[in-house]
Amino acid sequence: MSVVGELGLSEVGAVGSDALAEILTRTVSNEPVAAYAVAEPLSWDVLQQGGWDMLGVAEEDGGAGASLRDLVELARVWGRAIVPAPLLPTLMAKRWSASARECDGPVTFSVHTRTTGALAVAPFADMPGIEVLHDVSPGGSVGRAVVGHADDYAPSLRIAEVDVLSTWSADAAREMRVVWAAEATGCAARMLDDAVAYAKDRHQFGQPIGRFQAIKHHLANAHIFAEQAETAAILASLEPERAVAASRFAFDASLRVIEIAIQVHGGLGFTWEMGLHMYLRHVGALRELAAGLPE
């Protein structure tokens, strides 16, 4: 596989993430996130027909052979839009399991988080036709799960209780953790861009608020956190022994970026309609899912 981009990014990662960005822009760029996060802006068929679910599958198994480093780039692009579709879980399930690869429809898996008590939860669990991978490893099998109470904290992730707790191979758990962390850093990058644009546009005291040093420092700090978060996600994909610590860092730093973005948006930042909270919820919920993975 040829390395074309920075720090080991291959052509599959570079071209794939550009193409995905284009699809997402076409799909939701004119929609407010508060509206589409609770709707279905991108159908599974579009993703499946584009072969996106097979991107991370090895070439000898009929996939595009993306590396974990490539998937970091893809997840970052995905995180910019938080479209509520089960692409990343399906893509990862198919990467590890032959029986998942046989499914045309979406596939998910469950974890046990610290706040779900005795139960297991799975992202996108209540999507029609979704299969649950019982054992996230090469020999794992899929099946349907009984879906219980939906957790509506992060609407863009459609998390719900399921009656199956997936088991995880160490590698699968590590890779999923890294991809979720990378997704979080994409959320942060998007929120930073939005906050910078707002600071240039919003006027108070007769000038754009971005001219005030207090706002500049906020945004500079957010940029520093966003940069570190991205670096941490890349590092996590390349140094397996540091994946847990680096992913944790990426989640926390990404949340800081979104918190600052909300602060810079002032009153609008804490309205439901503006939708910045959808990103805050999304990253908070991802962090909780990732913390539920075996280390």
């Binding site: 930042g269 919820r281 962090r287």
Partner: peptide, 23 residues
């Protein structure tokens, strides 16, 4: 981050609400 399951909803709510307090 550290919430127990019993108080999860309270902490999620307070976390979101508290974002407004510095505004």
């Amino acid at each position: 981050k550290l919430s127990c399951s019993e108080h999860r909803d309270h902490w999620r709510y307070q976390y979101l609400e508290s974002r407004a307090a510095t505004i």
